[in-house]
Design a protein around this nucleic acid. Structure first.
Length: 216
DNA sequence: GAAACGATTATCT
DNA sequence: GATAATCGTTTCA
């Protein structure tokens, strides 16, 4: 892609000046998540993920998401062929809670449960642009700033998210999601999902088009 | 109880 | 770009 010189606005200044605004904006209410996974996946772009683990605050802007839209989605952990299992139980819970699962036996991945209770749909958070607590995230990850939260397994490590937060309601600490502190116009792209085999071509991955913080 | 399969990442060439 | 690492979850015998 050409036009690399036009960097996205948010990435310009060191935005720590904004960090104080994050906790000041109340978390998104449960009603925000009571929509289809596609709608929530798109609406989540630009919002802020914030964790406060062990008294340490980390926060950043969500720049990439992926929707898993229901029992008829063959790529979902809650696809019809599985039904309810020990692992996917949170996906059947009410909208607005976290579904955290272990990937490849190694990494944790964070999802937000959407739609309605007893209907398994969720949005995987795939990448975050680090804004606050960069020193903390760097200590947890030991990588360059660019790689702190670029990928679902990486961002959970940077934010200190583990399976202990499975089922957590996302409107209270230690893990919350907040509306964007500004009303910037977002350039949203979408396309095939990543890292799966079944129904990978369904265009359910959403990202901020010019963001250098997306995973692929 | 055993085997196969990943909603990934790090580390090569 | 290609591949190994690594182990929890699910499935099948």
């Amino acid at each position: 892609m050409a036009g690399r010189l036009r960097a996205s606005q948010g990435a310009r200044g060191r935005p720590d000046a904004l960090s104080g605004a994050v906790p000041a904006v109340p978390p998104l209410p449960a009603a925000f998540y009571a929509r289809s996974a596609q709608e929530v996946a798109r609406s989540l772009l630009g919002t802020w993920l914030r964790s406060e683990i062990g008294g340490e605050v980390a926060a950043g802007r969500i720049v990439e998401t992926e929707a898993y839209i229901g029992p008829h989605d063959p790529a979902s952990h809650a696809a019809e062929r599985y039904g309810r299992t020990r692992r996917n139980l949170s996906m059947f819970g009410p909208p607005g809670i976290a579904y955290v699962y272990r990937s490849y036996g190694i990494h944790w991945c964070l999802n937000v449960v959407t739609d309605r209770a007893d209907y398994p749909a969720a949005v995987l958070i795939r990448a975050v642009e680090p804004r606050t607590g960069i020193a903390i995230m760097t200590r947890r990850r030991g990588t360059a700033e660019r790689d702190l939260a670029r990928g679902p397994g990486r961002l959970t490590q940077a934010f200190g998210i583990t399976g202990a937060l499975d089922g957590h309601v996302l409107d209270r600490p230690p893990l919350t999601i907040h509306p964007a502190p500004d009303d910037a116009v977002l350039d949203i792209a979408n396309g095939p999902r990543v890292g799966i085999t079944r129904a990978a071509d369904w265009p359910l991955r959403y990202w901020l088009r010019d963001s250098p913080w997306v995973s692929r």
